[in-house]
Computed example of a mutant assay.
Amino acid sequence: MPMWRIFAAASLVIAAGSIAPASAQGFAPACQNLVKELCGRVSVGRCFQDESLWASVNPQCSGDIQTMIEMEREAGEQQTEDRNTRSRGNERPTRRQQAAEIQRGLSYGGILRAGPGMDYAKLGSLQPDDDINILEDTGIWFDEYKWFKVDSPIGVGYHWGGIFCTEGRAPEGVLSSCAEDISGGGPQPAPTAGPDESADAAEYVRTTFYTDEMLTEGLSPDNEGFFTNPAVDVIHANNGPGGSCIDVNPFVDAQDYDITEIKRTLKLNASRAANGQMLVEADFRNFGERKSIVWTLVGSSGFWQVSDIEGPETGSRLGAIRCP
C-alpha cells in the first residue's frame, strides 16, 4: 500500500474519529478513542512529543499508538522523497509552485481534507488564525478559489483557498493577503459571522433537524422545503418513483438513532465561509459512536436553507450522491 494512503488512513483514525480505517489497520477502537481524547486536533506524532501523555496510556494501547506514530513518520518521509524525485526529474515545479512551497498563511477555519475537493475525507478542522505553510498549488478550482496542499497544526492536507490568507501578495486562487492589500487599503479581515448570526444558525440546526419527529421523517418529501440545491435535487431523486437510493439518514450518518443520547451529547459550532455559506459542525454520539456532521446553510438569520450535509466518511456528502 502506498505510504500516502496509509497516512490518510491514520489521519482519519486520529482526527476524524472514523471506525472503519481503525479496523482496517488493526487498531483497537478503545485505543483510537483514547488518542482522540488526548490529542484532539493534533496529529498523534506531534501530540506524543509530550512525554507526560504516555502515563495516560494503558499497556494494551502502547503498541497501537507507536504504530500510528511510525506510520506518520514513514508517510512524511515518503512525501519528502516524492517531492525530491519530482524536482530532479522532468516534472519540475513551476515558479508558482516553488513560491507556494515556502509561503506562509493563516487559516480562517474550516476543514482540512485528504485531497483537493469536497468529496475527499475530512482529516480534521482548522481554527481561525491557525498558521499554515502552503506546499503546493493543485490548480483545481472550486467556487472561484483553488485547493492548496498545506502543512498545518493538525498535519498535511488540502485547504480551500477561499478560507485562508497568505503573507505578501496572495497567489491566484487565494482569498486575500493577510497584510495590507495592494492598494494600501488596510488589513484584509477574515470572513466572519456575527455572534448572533452564528448562534442562530447553530440553533436552527439543533431545533429543526435534531428532533425525534425530523429524524424519523429524514429525507421525506415533506421536508424538501428546508433544502436548496444541490441537496434538494438529491432529495427529489431519492423520493422518485423508482424508490429511495439513500440507505442511511444523513442527519446522523446511520440507519437508526438514539434521540436521548444525541440531544445529551450534541455540540454545535457555526462559522461563515468566504463564499457566504454558513458551516455548522454538529458533533454527537449515537449508540455510543461518535459522529461529526457538517451542515452547509445559505441565507441569514431567520431565512436558512440547507444546501448540503456531509458525514465523516469519504463520499458521504449528500450533494454528491447520484440516484439512478
Rank of each mutant, 00 (worst) to 15 (best):
G302H: 03
D196V: 15
E37D: 13
P241I: 13
P324H: 05
R83P: 00
D258P: 10
G115A: 11
E167R: 09
Y108I: 07
K36W: 10
F27T: 08
K149S: 08
H159T: 05
E81V: 09
A75V: 06
D64R: 04
A274Y: 05
A55T: 10
A273F: 13
S271C: 01
P312H: 02
A193N: 07
A100N: 05
S301H: 04
S292M: 05
D212C: 06
V42Q: 15
S11H: 07
G124V: 11
N249D: 03
Y158G: 07
K146R: 15
P21V: 06
I321P: 05
V156D: 08
G186N: 07
A190F: 08
E224K: 08
V42P: 05
C31G: 10
E77L: 15
R264W: 11
E197H: 02
L53G: 03
I102W: 05
G109W: 00
S177N: 05
G299Y: 00
G243M: 03
P189W: 04
E281C: 02
S125Q: 14
V280F: 00
S301R: 15
I69Q: 06
I111R: 09
G218Q: 03
E74W: 07
T208A: 09
F164L: 02
R92Q: 14
F142H: 12
A270M: 10
A190R: 13
